[in-house]
Amino acid sequence: MSIKLPFLKFKDKQIPDKKRIEQQNIPEHVAIIMDGNGRWANKRGLPRVAGHKEGVGAVQKVVRAADKLHISALTLFAFSTENWQRSKTEVDFLMRMPKQFFHKYLPELMERNVRVETVGNFEQLPDHTKKAVWNAVEKTKDNDGLLLNFALNYGGRLDIMQAAKKMAEDIKKDELSIADVDESVFGSYLYTNGMSEPDLLIRTSGEKRISNFMLWQCAYSEFWFTEVFWPDFDEEVFMQAIQAYQQRKRRFGSV
């Protein structure tokens, strides 16, 4: 029988009895495609960057909720390899967001014992972006609570491709035998080496695709889609996703 968590408070409101969360069935790793910032802004007659700015608050709401549920890892798709195609104004704004986010929320992340990591082609990012992220990574490296993982300049195909290249190089240098290559070995070459695969993948804004995100890692993830735009995503919607996950039976190919 599943043990129920005590009431969890979100926005100073208690979750109704029927919405309690099963303690024994919490996803270890939740990944989120944070979509709909631009459409949120357009509906309000605002520039697209206003949606991105508003979305920063949603990030911290989800971090707080994940921390309260004792989720081990939370991966947020912050900037894809395809996002460089957007306007320079929007890209420049997105590249400044890590500095703004950590300036405001790093003290709380430290207080919550959150450890910050990042995956993706980090070297292509502007210096000021790398500096802000690495500062957060360095300051939180000894924390052992929630892993907050930002996917920056990340693409699933790029991840697989760079892993294949690195593995081929090691085989060429006789540091790896082809006979020893299996899924575990290949996974160790991915950006996410050392991380568990996502149990639950959430996408906001009503779109129902994964848009080149963690193609290898999400092979057996449960998907949950919501019409809610990312700036409006909060603890209550996050709880709905967790509850939906807990109602499913994961078979991993078995019957």
Score class of each variant (00 low, 15 high):
residue 30 V to S: 05
residue 55 G to L: 03
residue 163 A to V: 03
residue 61 K to V: 00
residue 50 A to Q: 13
residue 175 E to T: 02
residue 134 W to L: 03
residue 82 E to V: 05
residue 179 A to W: 12
residue 197 E to I: 06
residue 243 Q to I: 07
residue 198 P to H: 04
residue 232 D to F: 06
residue 25 N to F: 13
residue 5 L to G: 11
residue 52 H to C: 14
residue 13 K to T: 06
residue 110 M to D: 03
residue 10 F to W: 11
residue 182 D to R: 08
residue 38 G to H: 04
residue 171 I to W: 02
residue 255 V to H: 13
residue 4 K to H: 08
residue 111 E to L: 14
residue 133 V to Q: 06
residue 159 D to P: 13
residue 83 N to M: 09
residue 47 P to K: 07
residue 242 I to H: 07
residue 166 K to H: 12
residue 83 N to A: 07
residue 84 W to E: 01
residue 142 D to I: 10
residue 74 L to H: 08
residue 73 A to T: 10
residue 121 N to I: 11
residue 167 M to C: 00
residue 144 D to W: 09
residue 208 K to P: 02
residue 33 I to E: 02
residue 65 A to Q: 09
residue 25 N to H: 05
residue 161 M to H: 04
residue 10 F to G: 10
residue 188 S to D: 15
residue 241 A to H: 09
residue 17 D to A: 15
residue 122 F to K: 12
residue 243 Q to L: 15
residue 142 D to V: 06
residue 97 M to W: 09
residue 135 N to D: 13
residue 231 P to K: 15
residue 232 D to I: 05
residue 129 T to I: 00
residue 22 E to R: 15
residue 155 G to F: 00
residue 204 T to C: 08
residue 81 T to I: 09
residue 109 L to K: 15
residue 234 D to C: 08
residue 86 R to M: 02
residue 76 L to W: 05
residue 5 L to P: 03
residue 51 G to P: 12
residue 123 E to I: 08
residue 5 L to T: 08
residue 19 K to Y: 11
residue 105 Y to M: 01
residue 5 L to S: 12
residue 249 K to H: 07
residue 103 H to G: 08
residue 47 P to E: 06
residue 227 E to K: 09
residue 214 M to N: 08
residue 248 R to P: 11
residue 63 V to R: 01
residue 236 E to F: 06
residue 209 R to K: 07
residue 69 L to Q: 02
residue 1 M to L: 11
residue 251 R to V: 04
residue 219 A to Q: 13
residue 63 V to C: 05
residue 173 K to S: 14
residue 112 R to L: 14
residue 57 G to A: 06
residue 51 G to L: 08
residue 251 R to E: 01
residue 64 R to F: 02
residue 169 E to Y: 13
residue 182 D to G: 12
residue 212 N to G: 10
residue 5 L to R: 09
residue 234 D to V: 07
residue 246 Q to I: 12
residue 153 N to I: 12
residue 164 A to H: 04
residue 56 V to L: 12
residue 104 K to L: 10
residue 61 K to N: 06
residue 44 R to Q: 00
residue 138 E to F: 10
residue 131 K to S: 06
residue 117 E to V: 08
residue 244 A to P: 07
residue 98 P to G: 10
residue 66 A to Y: 11
residue 223 F to T: 09
residue 36 G to N: 12
residue 64 R to A: 11
